[in-house]
Design a protein around this nucleic acid. Structure first.
Lengths: 217, 217, 217, 217
DNA sequence: CGGTAAACGAGACGGTACGTCGTGTCTTGAC
DNA sequence: GTCAAGACACGACGTACCGTCTCGTTTACCG
């Protein structure tokens, strides 16, 4: 921890002139990097101890506790910044393209070990860990859902998506399959480039056979 | 822990005459009951400590470790017996009814706190906890998937479901939406009796509007 | 810590049947021995950390905290058992012999590093550390003082010691010089076998010249 | 810490023109005053932390470390200036008066909490804290002892004190009792104005009864 | 019916991590 | 160049839990 430059409080706007020695941005990055590395190495929640993180980052425990009130908050912060939404609101020209882009973004995230760790570990703690629940909802679920909502609403307006279902149900139909494959069915491959497209098409068309020809069933 | 009767090792066939005092079945039930109760009270994996479980069950720690090698094994066992498949293979006459029955079974389980705990907590530990992964796959995922596979195969044979998609994708389309609502979108209600039916119909029909003029079904 | 035998709570009479695994006497001895060894090696109060003691004794920290509520209590206990009064109440036939025995006991203790550590460190904490003060007074000062009081009272009764001074002042006159040499004047030798005798005689006779011959000064 | 005037380094002659902002004398005084106040409030060595001192003095920690290399040096410095010898070498006309003055000086110091803190805390650290030992010996013990030595030597020359005992033993006989009362026997009162006189007389006369018939003095 | 073997509750054992606090050093902007 | 403020690496504090190990007691079976 030699070169140290100014860094404000993690997720806080500059509130005051910040007297005293500023917090080391290098320390912060080292901490986050250590957490991510340990996640990638397959550590569970227990193995991800503050002492291990501090040792791996070459940082004192107090430097971590100065920024985050406890282990949970640190992990929440790390996963929040991993799960930010860098997807442009409408990545595609058509609604179908937008949906494919969204699904494919989830798929690509699922390929990264860190992100899968986040998704799965966070999920398991949502009940017993209210802060994580709030933050996860605010930072991960909400923007994602908002994006889905926008796309779907556009799709409904354009007459591409059904208007007799509420938006939540539509969202679940689009997002559910890929998330299930990410989280639950680990054998199922995620490295299939065309997966998102096939999935979206299947969801748009439906699982039932089309009444092609004229009559259904 | 007054009345104690004979009880064999949890998942083990009677191998020997079992000399000495037999294991207390009451102790075993008390342990499992305590775990379930603590789950319902919203304890996370950390709060579910062996010491807490033993104290709540009025049982010595050794009595737990005599039955299960570690905390994980105990939880896995409790999970497994919560998630057994009591669903009749084909609960409905038609394929649609069978799908609705399956989805509704998941929905009803999601209403129970214990089951949601299992689903979510287990999910979060699948990576870092290999025993749980194996057992969960074997005891929960596999039978459920097998059931879905049977129904879907029948649906494909009967011409009710598309045959141009692989079974996994079809399964995800059916199961994904309800699971997502169970695990992730806690605000979304699960106590809607008609939810499973609407979901299955929506998935069968698809999210997109039917291109051809006219009504379906 | 292989061989473990029963040991009751340190300074407590057997109050109850003591359920559960009894405390390891070996652990207790190892802890006390480690403290004494660290004292002899010249550690100060800061160097005498619980973590160091536990490591040196091959013992977990909890094993220490199970017996003593904090570091101070442990040290108090160790010093108390170092400073116990093994001196027979009247080690000598005459009052002078008893006094010499008492003073020589203090001298011999002062030769031991541990005891000097105790005396000096304890002294320095008597003000700010009420528990130590109470215990030290009760276990060290009081019996010692009581012994001195007995001897002196006998001396006064036998007409060997002055009766126009209160007992405390007389005690101080006898005990003060040797304690000062022990605690404060480290250059002054304590390994002089005849020191106690000379001291007692000097104190009995007084620092002033005797009015030998008949007239004084 | 408002008014700040020039102050040289504590125990250092002005060596250079001292460029830059001069050190605040007020800060120095505030530090020393805080230490003394904390001593009086009964803080032990542990409670006397640099952070507490700095906070109490309204001063940054660096301001302390700029003047003293560590906590020990600071305390030694404060101790030394508390224990300076303001006693005139021969406060009395006769040897007895000088001894009484010396003893009474110790008694009066013992009444002050700070001084007793010094005496007792310093005592406890002499072994494990070499700097304190050297300084304490040099600044406190040595001058005091030198004074005692002078008085006693005069007493021996004048035939008032015994000449068959070495000076150290005589010093211990005079100084021991009052120090013991100061340090060890806290119940014993120190606010007795005539205590020093009675003590000196007792020590001069001796604890034993005079064998010859008649009165002394 | 008495012996024996194992399970029982309780709880101590050596470890590891927690979150807090103090040390002595370093680094800001202000004076 | 000093000031107040406070972050830094380090390490001890006292607590909680892990999985193992005794204790003394209880409860079956077997000879």
């Amino acid at each position: 921890m030699q070169t140290e430059t100014t860094a404000p409080v993690p997720g806080e706007g500059s509130c005051a002139p910040r007297r005293g020695r500023p917090r080391s941005e290098a320390a912060e990055q080292a901490i986050v990097a250590s957490v991510e590395r340990l996640m990638e190495e397959g550590s569970g929640l227990t193995e991800l101890s503050i002492e291990r993180i501090a040792a791996a980052a070459g940082v004192g425990k107090a430097t971590i506790y100065r920024r985050w009130p406890n282990k949970e908050a640190l992990l929440v912060d790390v996963l929040a910044r991993l799960e930010q939404m860098p997807v442009p609101p409408h990545a595609g020209a058509t609604v179908r393209d937008s949906l494919i882009a969204m699904v494919d973004d989830i798929r690509r995230r699922g390929l990264a070990k860190r992100s899968r760790w986040v998704l799965k570990t966070a999920l398991g703690q949502l009940d017993s860990w209210p802060e994580l629940r709030v933050l996860y909802k605010e930072k991960v679920i909400k923007p994602r859902r908002e994006l889905a909502r926008q796309i779907i609403r556009r799709g409904v307006e354009e007459g591409v998506l059904r208007d007799d279902l509420d938006v939540d149900l539509l969202t679940e139909m689009v997002v559910g399959p890929i998330l299930i494959r990410t989280v639950l069915w680990e054998d199922a491959p995620l490295d299939d480039e065309g997966l998102a497209e096939r999935m979206v098409d299947a969801v748009l068309t439906g699982a039932g056979v089309r009444p092609s020809g004229g009559e259904s069933h």
